[in-house]
Amino acid sequence: MQCKYETIISNELLVPQTYRMVLTCHTCAEMVPGQFINIKLKEFSLRRPISICSIDGDRITIIYKVVGQGTKALSEMKAGECIDVFAPLGHGYPIESQRDRVLLIGGGVGIPPLYELAKQYRKLGKHVDVVCGFPNAEACFYEAEFTELGAHVYIATMDGSKGCKGTVLDAVRHYQLTTTFICACGPLPMLKALEAVYNDGYFSLESRMACGMGACMACVAKDQKQADMYHRICKEGPVFPIGKVVLA
């Protein structure tokens, strides 16, 4: 965990409103899939937490959606510029090498952290199914990249313009994916729907954060079993076992 100036290698539009940035990173050796980096942007008080999509030697890839002024400023940064990065933060997805199959389920910009995870499970020779949910065909990304890893990719779009029409769970049913160990990341309604079906695996949560390292208590989730127990999304998370924290 260090705060360093890194160099942007590339920063380009991937699909509408969604960008892919490749940057150098001093702390690649420490990183695990599901962790995040916290980016300082000029003129903004708080850092922007963004999940790590791919770890490649001394570089990482992040994929982020422009949702406000901070991510807009990030999207306007150019290759060659320096960027203040605090990384890696949080606890990622444990790699469970005893598993033969893993089902990865992502919604929108919840998909990127699953890419590095798919890569690591594929390196272990595991069967990896990936279900990616998008609003429409235009918003789809990384189908080819996951396929290149040797993962089986299934697409769900809400308008049915690509793959299965409906949610990721509709796609799971449609394509009869029976793996019960899942790792998921995506919007809260998606995670809640998955929680009703699956109890074995991990969820990655998103939250508004301040310090990003566990000091300020801005991003807490309640424990499902112990009423007075809490977990910091930035520190104990963002990845939690299914059933650990209250999804709210």
């Binding site: 903004f44 300020c216 989730a221 007075d228």
Partner: peptide, 25 residues
């Protein structure tokens, strides 16, 4: 006694600052 604090979101960015409502967790 222990305090859980307020519900989330507990922070929001502002120009040259931030708002917090952690609630003494």
């Amino acid at each position: 006694a222990p305090r859980f604090g307020n519900e989330c979101p507990r922070v929001a960015e502002t120009p040259s600052g931030m708002l917090n409502a952690i609630g003494l967790q």
